[in-house]
Every structure is written in C-alpha cells, then in structure tokens.
Amino acid sequence: MPIGLIALALGGFGIGLTEFVIMGLLPEVATDFRVSEATAGWLISGYALAVVLGALLLTAAVTRFERKPVLAVLMVLFIAGNVLSALAPDYWTMMIGRIIAALSHGAFFGVGAVVAANMVAPTKKAGAIAIMFTGLTAANVLGVPFGTMLGQATGWRSTFWAITGIGVLALAGILALVPSTGSGDAAPGGLRSELRAFRSGQVWLSILVTILGYGGMFGAFTYIAFTLTEVTGFSSSTVPWLLILFGVGLFIGNTVGGKAADKNVDRTLIVVLSALVAVLVVFALTSGNQPMTIASMVLLGGFGFATVPGLQMRVMKYANNAPTLASGANIGAFNVGNALGAWLGGVTITAGLGYTSPIWAGAGTTVLGLVVMAFAAADAKRSQIVATDSDTRAVANASL
C-alpha cells in the first residue's frame, strides 16, 4: 500500500469527524444556542450544501495546480473553520464556521480520490479510494463516539478544539507523505476538458444515484440521537457507544464494498442499495426494540457506506481522462444527499410524524436511488453491446 494513502486517510479522518460528530452533540448544541432540533439540524444541512459549493467551485479553480499543495491549502481552510466553530458565541457564527470548514471538504476528497486512484494499478482503484475513505469510517468508529463523550463531559466546544488539533496533524501528514503528482489531469485543455466529462449521461446518472442512495442512509442517521433516546429508550450516555457500532459497520462496509466494486461496480451497487432499503424498513419497524436497533445500526452503517467506493469509482470511470471535477462533483453529490436527507427528516419530525419518520423517508429515498441505478446499469450494458457490435462489423468490413 502506498504510504501516501495513509496521509489521505488522515485528512479524511479530520474532515469526517467535523461532518459527523455534531450529530451526537446535536441536543447539546440546540440547548446551548436555544434553537429547536430542526434548526440545529441545519448545521448539518448547511455544512452539506457548502461542501457542494466547494466541490464544484474550488475543484474547478484548482484543476491546473499541483495536487499536493492544493490538498495542504484545503486542510488549512478546514482548520480555520473549526477554530471559528469552537469559538462561536451564537448559532449563526457557528454556521459560518461550519461553512468555512465545509468548503474544503468536497475539493479535498475530489482531488484526493484522483490522487489515490493514480497511486495504484487500474484493477485496484476502488480499493485505493476505499483506503482514503477509511479516514471517514475511522472518524465514525473512533472519532465520533469519543468526540461525543468529550463534548458531553466537557462541553461541545472542546470537541471542536480537538478536531482543530487533528487537522494540524493531518496537514503535517499531507506535507510529509503525499507525493508530488504533477499539475492538472492528463487530458489537455484544463477546465474545458474537465467540463466535457459532464456530457456523459452515465456521469449524471451516477451523481443522481449518489444523491438518492447516500441521502437515504444519511436521512435516517441525522436524527439518530433522538431516535435512540426518545423511541428506543437508550440513555443519552449510551449514544456514543451505539455510534461506535454504527462506525464498525461503516468500516466493514467501506472495505468490502471497495473490493466488490473492483470486480463489478454496477452489480455491487444494485445489491448493496437493495440491502440498504431492507435494513431501513426493518429499522423503522423495530426501532422500539433495543437488540434489533443495535443490529440495525451496524447494518445501516455497513450497507450505507459500502456504496461509497463504487459510486466514486463509477463517476470517475465515465469521466474518462478528466476525472478531477467529476470526482469533486460526486463528493458534492454525497453532500446534496446529506442535505436532502437531513431536510426530509426535519420536515417529517416538524410535521409530528415522530422520530422514526426520518428512517421511513430514508427508505423511500433509497428506493428511488435503486431504480436509477438499475436503469443506469441497463443503459451502460446496452451501450457496451452496441459498441461491441459496431467494432465487430468494422473488423468484418475491413477484412473484405
């Protein structure tokens, strides 16, 4: 394994911690700023929407620059956002800090995914991307639960100071371990070549699957602290330990999903999305049962994150020789899904449908993602058959 992948995973760990840890601290943040649960949830949705802007605008702006310095600058931006979050005297200052940190997120993973894929052989690209995203899973397995416990014990601000320290370590790791990779992509024309990747219908279908499939999982997860305490009956002190189980599922799903996607990406995504729908339905139906909820947490994390390497590899595959902006756009799509899921969950809770309603909304969103994925796979297969037939006829005509 190239050592540079470790540095990328370290950066992913810090960014993943910023994105996800607030879910376990949402009740404390809502109380401190004297806002409702749904309003506090916008700290998640606002972050996600800012990721989309960063993924598109910042990635487009840096396509011609050497990737290693770009990753370092993005990490500096991430650190600054978390310092502001830790110092925030009110809700809107906290939101600004979240937005600043989020702007680095999409571009970091978009550029980082391309760097990771270029470090290994073509048959191991999804696995390399999975290693980079291991930082996100480690953030959930270790960072989020312990960050939640830290925040509950010493105040939620202490968690963001700890994240700032991790960001500094990640910056040092990037500078020391990530190799210089040259500037821009292999395709000539810079940004214009990058934009041509979006002429592919399969790129757009992949992005839509990312929004719907990941958004379904995230919608169920956004308000999980309220579901666990208000529906299942766990105490708030138990929530961090349950988040560890969710993180274990993420780690396993990310690893297995990456290996499976290297063999057949479309089949992997269809199977995983189907399983995710089933898990969400069972979770919603049995959320009052503690043992079933524990099992559902593990499976939700596993199948929810098993989609990530395949979704990222698929959009890069159909972007051909200009993958950086398409990769960044798909990272943005993950966070459009995050925002969509959090918004739908907030709407259902505000409508008085209870704390299991975000899970049902997530199941419905994932079903839509599965339908789009099935169509995309069938369309890709038809196109491949047509292209093969055309090549065969061309060879036959040339031999006459």
Score class of each variant (00 low, 15 high):
10 L>T: 11
13 F>M: 08
16 G>K: 01
16 G>M: 04
22 I>A: 11
27 P>S: 11
27 P>L: 02
28 E>I: 08
29 V>Q: 07
33 F>N: 09
39 T>N: 13
42 W>T: 12
43 L>V: 06
44 I>P: 00
45 S>E: 09
47 Y>A: 05
49 L>Q: 02
53 L>I: 14
54 G>H: 04
57 L>S: 08
58 L>S: 03
61 A>P: 04
62 V>I: 12
65 F>Y: 13
66 E>H: 13
66 E>R: 13
70 V>S: 03
75 M>I: 10
81 G>Q: 01
83 V>L: 12
85 S>F: 02
85 S>T: 12
89 P>A: 04
93 T>I: 15
97 G>K: 02
103 L>E: 04
104 S>L: 02
104 S>I: 00
110 G>R: 00
114 V>L: 04
123 T>L: 10
125 K>T: 11
129 I>T: 13
129 I>P: 00
129 I>E: 01
131 I>K: 08
132 M>D: 03
134 T>S: 14
135 G>D: 01
138 A>I: 14
143 G>P: 03
147 G>V: 01
148 T>Q: 00
148 T>H: 00
151 G>T: 02
151 G>S: 06
155 G>D: 05
158 S>G: 14
159 T>Q: 01
162 A>W: 02
166 I>L: 14
166 I>E: 01
172 A>P: 02
175 L>S: 03
176 A>L: 13
179 P>L: 05
179 P>Q: 06
181 T>C: 11
182 G>Q: 07
185 D>N: 13
186 A>K: 13
186 A>F: 06
190 G>Q: 05
190 G>T: 05
195 L>N: 08
196 R>G: 08
198 F>T: 01
199 R>V: 08
200 S>M: 09
200 S>R: 01
200 S>A: 11
201 G>E: 02
201 G>Y: 08
204 W>T: 03
207 I>A: 15
211 I>F: 10
213 G>C: 10
214 Y>A: 08
215 G>Y: 06
216 G>E: 03
217 M>Y: 11
222 T>W: 03
222 T>Y: 04
227 T>V: 11
230 E>N: 14
233 G>A: 07
234 F>T: 04
235 S>M: 10
236 S>Q: 15
238 T>Q: 11
242 L>P: 00
248 V>H: 10
258 G>H: 02
267 R>K: 15
268 T>N: 05
268 T>W: 01
269 L>Q: 04
271 V>K: 02
272 V>A: 10
281 V>K: 05
286 T>K: 03
289 N>L: 13
290 Q>R: 12
291 P>S: 06
293 T>M: 13
298 V>R: 06
299 L>V: 04
300 L>N: 03
300 L>W: 13
307 T>M: 14
308 V>C: 06
310 G>F: 06
316 M>R: 12
319 A>S: 13
325 L>M: 08
326 A>N: 09
336 V>I: 15
347 V>M: 14
348 T>A: 15
348 T>S: 15
349 I>K: 09
355 Y>H: 11
356 T>G: 07
358 P>K: 03
361 A>G: 08
361 A>M: 06
361 A>L: 04
363 A>L: 04
374 A>G: 07
375 F>P: 11
381 K>I: 15
382 R>E: 11
383 S>V: 09
386 V>W: 10
390 S>P: 09
390 S>W: 15
390 S>N: 12
393 R>H: 15
395 V>K: 12
397 N>D: 15
397 N>I: 15
